[in-house]
Each structure stands twice: as C-alpha cells, then as structure tokens.
C-alpha cells in the first residue's frame, strides 16, 4: 500500500498537498487540497476544487522530468534571445546613427563651400581641396547667408543619398530584432511594449551621439580656426543624429507594437487549424481565441 495511507483511521486529519501541481483538466492549482485514496486500488489522488477532476499523485509513464528539462531549455533560450535582441538593437541603432550622421555631415562641407563661392566669397585656391584644408570663414557661417547655406546643404543630394541609404539599412536590420522583442514582450501591455522597444534604440543613438560629440570636440580643440569640413560638420551632425536617432526608436516601437499581430497572422496562414495549438499561446496570451478557419 502507499505510505500516506498505510493505516488510515477515520478521524485522523487527512494529509494535504504541499507541492505545486495543476489539475490535469483545468490547470487549477491543487496546493492545499486533501489527498484521497481509492479504496479498491490504493491510488493516491487529489480532487480539483474547481472542476472535481481527480489528479493522481503518481502516474506511469511519467513525463514530468522531461517537461522540467524542456522548461529549463525553453527558459534559457528565452533569456539568451532577449539579451541578444537587446544588444543587437543597441548596436544596430548606435552604429547606423553614427555612420549616417557622420557621412552626411561630412558631405555637406563641399555644398557650403560652393554656396560661399556662388555668393562671391573668396577662398585660398592654393589650399582648397574640396573644402577640407582651408580655414573656415566663421563670420560668414554665422551670418544669415551662412545659416541658409548650412540648411540647404542638409537637403543636398550629396548628403541625403548616404544618409537615407544608411538609415534604410539600419531600419531593415533593426526591424527583425524589434519584431522579436515585440513577441518576447507579448504578455505586456501595448504601451509597455512600445516603451521598452523605444528604450534600446534610444540608448544606442545616445551612445553614438556621445561618440560623435567627443570626436567633434577633439577636432575643435587647440584654439585653431577649424577647416570648412570640421566647421560644417560641427554645425550639421546634431541635426542628422537627431533625425536618425528619432527615427530608429519610432520604427522599433511601431514594429514591436505590430509584432505579435503580424506573427500570429503568419502562423494562421502557415499552419492548418489542427496544428495551431502548437502556437496557441500567440492568441491566448493576447486574450483571443485560436482561429478555427
């Protein structure tokens, strides 16, 4: 006979279940339920307080060890994916914010020099090489004409082509990670999901901005008059960094918001109704029934 009921006495207090178990029928927690014994077979079991289904304390063939191992593997995989996604989002947004802002700001210099020449400004021809070696006319740059030339240089094709290309590449690489983050955070509220998705690209862009600012400060150190390239770069890189640093978090937040819906739609298309229970959590975690069509 089983130990807990070797010598049962009618008035003795019955043992209650101390460990964590769930009802096999409705998954209701069974902790604290009285342990009963089937008189005919000696089987120990507890009855669910919700649905009344008997759950045996021992069963053959047992699957519990494998379920526990699978849960460990799943939890580890989940944690590794989450850490990897966070690192990748910070890296992608940081690298591409830096690259897009740096190249676009440097490309602006020649446009500003051309604007100076067209407005009748003088340049030392012996030192001129695409606006890199000559000293910048800081007085002209701070005038209205100089400010207008700087604004126009940001919209020039020479600056926009690399800027948009690098921003597009960064977005294409960021979207899969944001999608994964949206699925990982599926059980969270939509606003919470969006806030977390904004956080990491913002951190990456912040780091990139700090590096750009440090490099700029080092190039301007020493009290010399900066070259055209350095002066235009100093004036324009915050603008490009702000635009791309705002775009990446926005794209990540939108993707993370739509991620679970898009992935559920994908699996609805790929899986026949009978197989959808493999990924039933995609609908159940969002409080929706598993589609049957």
């Amino acid at each position: 006979m089983n130990d807990a009921t070797d010598h049962p006495t009618p008035n003795a207090p019955r043992e209650t279940l101390a460990g964590d178990r769930l009802c096999v029928q409705c998954m209701h927690p069974l902790v604290g339920r009285a342990i009963e014994r089937d008189a005919q077979t000696g089987l120990l079991f507890v009855r669910c307080g919700e649905c009344g289904t008997a759950s045996a304390l021992f069963e053959y063939p047992t699957v519990a060890p494998w379920v526990r191992r699978f849960k460990t593997v799943a939890a580890s995989t989940f944690a590794i994916i989450a850490v990897g996604v966070i690192a990748a989002m910070i890296a992608v947004s940081g690298i591409f914010t830096g690259a897009a802002s740096n190249i676009a700001a440097e490309e602006c210099a020649s446009e500003v020099v051309l604007a100076l020449q067209s407005s009748g400004g003088a340049l030392d021809e012996s030192e001129f090489a695409e606006g890199i070696y000559t000293d910048a006319d800081l007085v002209w740059l701070s005038s209205d004409a100089g400010a207008r030339a700087l604004r126009d240089s940001r919209r020039s094709l020479a600056a926009l082509l690399p800027f948009l290309t690098f921003t597009a590449i960064g977005t294409i690489l960021l979207v899969p990670f944001a999608l994964t983050l949206g699925v990982v955070l599926m059980r969270r509220h939509a606003l919470e999901r969006a806030a977390v998705a904004v956080l990491f690209p913002l951190a990456g862009a912040g780091v990139a901005y700090a590096i750009l600012a440090t490099v700029d400060a080092m190039r301007n150190a020493g009290g010399f008059t900066p070259s055209w390239s350095v002066a235009v770069y100093s004036a324009n890189y915050p603008y490009f960094a702000l635009v791309v640093g705002g775009w990446f978090p926005l794209a990540a937040a939108t993707t993370a918001l739509l991620g679970p819906t898009l992935l559920a739609a994908f699996f609805r298309f790929v899986l026949p109704p009978s197989d959808r229970r493999l990924v039933a959590w995609m609908w159940e975690w969002r409080g929706k029934p598993v589609p049957r069509d």
């Binding site: 006979m1 089983n2 096999v24 009963e36 089937d38 008189a39 005919q40 077979t41 000696g42 089987l43 120990l44 079991f45 289904t53 008997a54 045996a56 021992f58 069963e59 053959y60 063939p61 047992t62 699957v63």
Partner: peptide
C-alpha cells in the same frame, strides 16, 4: 471513484495512474 486507469503493483500494492496517452 477517481475515474482513472490505475496500475497497482501485484507484489507491494503501490498504485499509480496509468496514462500512456498523456505520456
């Protein structure tokens, strides 16, 4: 009583629910 298939050991009487389908 429990509405379960039970395998009881013929030697020591230890009883377990028999659920090959669940396994």
């Amino acid at each position: 009583l429990a509405r379960l298939w039970v395998a009881a050991c013929p030697r020591c009487g230890f009883a377990v629910a028999w659920m090959p389908r669940r396994a």
